[in-house]
């Protein structure tokens, strides 16, 4: 049989692949190289505020000055290590909180009959239709000392004096969990709705109570969904700037804030760039490792 298709674009798939490649090249690789270049330069009171890496010293001779001092500075100053660690810690806790809220939600949605299922899914995505900043400000109104939450709790009599939540890490966890919840719920929902229900009938038939069934069948079979959702929350949460800036306290020192300070307050673009490059390496390293692990697992299965 003659193969169908458009003979003119016989290598159509190659052309299609060019689009994302070009996109990544333009908007990811080139900016990355620019940032990498700045991170290797020296700060200066100038416009832009750093010295060029490549300079024509005399005709026909280019001088390349690579300044690794920024990196050395970051490694030596414990402030940076502390804020990297703080970022990872807050991102980890937030991811865990998101997972603990998101998994039951995804489970309920996946087990719901149509049309309730679609409705619930829309409700999960609905907050995206309003401004992100507005929603974070709304959390300030809820969490502040004389805010909604405290008034309600005081009124009901559960507490006798207002809880201090705003400007603590707890507010940051809540903010991140709230903001990134859909990124957790959607992959979990996909994994859970793919789960073959007869497997749960089989486990129940063999004597497993619903909880045992969950831990021996549902959970292991939805691990890929848990991985995917957690990465989608964890990775952006590490670099999160707005949420800790608005909801966190002064002692909540996440790397995004440090970067912002270096860039705007200190106007030290090279240090800020170096901070960004190190953060990228810190995220990409484990990510690639996880990716390979998962690929290996799929191969082995």
């Amino acid at each position: 049989m003659k193969p169908l298709g458009l003979p003119k674009f016989k290598n159509g798939h190659r052309w299609v692949a060019w689009v994302p490649t070009l996109w990544l090249l333009l908007f990811f690789l080139i900016p990355f190289l620019v940032v990498a270049k700045i991170s290797l330069s020296e700060a200066a009171i100038a416009m832009p505020p750093y010295l060029p890496v490549i300079e024509w010293v005399e005709s026909g001779v280019a001088q390349i000055r690579l300044n690794v001092g920024n990196y050395l500075f970051i490694i030596e100053d414990p402030l940076y290590a502390a804020s990297y660690w703080e970022s990872v810690r807050i991102a980890l806790v937030s991811t865990l909180v998101t997972l603990l809220i998101g998994y039951p939600m995804a489970h309920v949605i996946a087990m719901s009959p149509e049309p309730r299922r679609t409705l619930l899914l829309i409700l999960v995505i609905l907050p995206f239709w309003t401004s992100f900043l507005l929603r974070v400000y709304a959390w300030i109104a809820i969490l502040k000392t004389n805010g909604l939450l405290n008034s309600v709790l005081l009124h009901v009599g559960l507490i006798s004096e207002p809880l201090v939540i705003l400007q603590t890490d707890v507010a940051v966890y809540l903010g991140i969990a709230y903001t990134y919840l859909p990124f957790m719920v959607l992959p979990l929902y996909a994994a859970l709705s793919r789960l073959d229900r007869t497997l749960l009938e089989a486990s129940a038939d063999l004597g497993a109570t619903p909880w045992v069934s969950f831990f021996t069948v549902t959970l292991p079979l939805t691990l890929p969904g848990i991985f995917a959702g957690s990465l989608l929350v964890f990775v952006p949460a590490i670099g999160e700037f707005v949420i800790p800036a608005l909801l966190g306290g002064n002692d909540t020192l996440m790397i995004g804030k440090v970067l912002w300070n270096e860039f705007f307050a200190n106007r030290d673009w090279p240090i800020a760039s170096a901070v960004a490059i190190i953060m990228l390496c810190l995220i990409v390293g484990p990510l690639m490792w996880l990716n390979r692990l998962q690929a290996k697992q799929e191969q082995g299965a």
Binding site: E201, A202, S203, T209
Partner: peptide
């Protein structure tokens, strides 16, 4: 009685073997 308390076992049409 819930399935996990009944003295019966079932062989499923799709076999329903645990893939993991």
């Amino acid at each position: 009685w819930p399935p996990y308390e009944r003295p019966v076992n079932m062989m499923f049409q799709s076999y329903a073997l645990f893939p993991h």
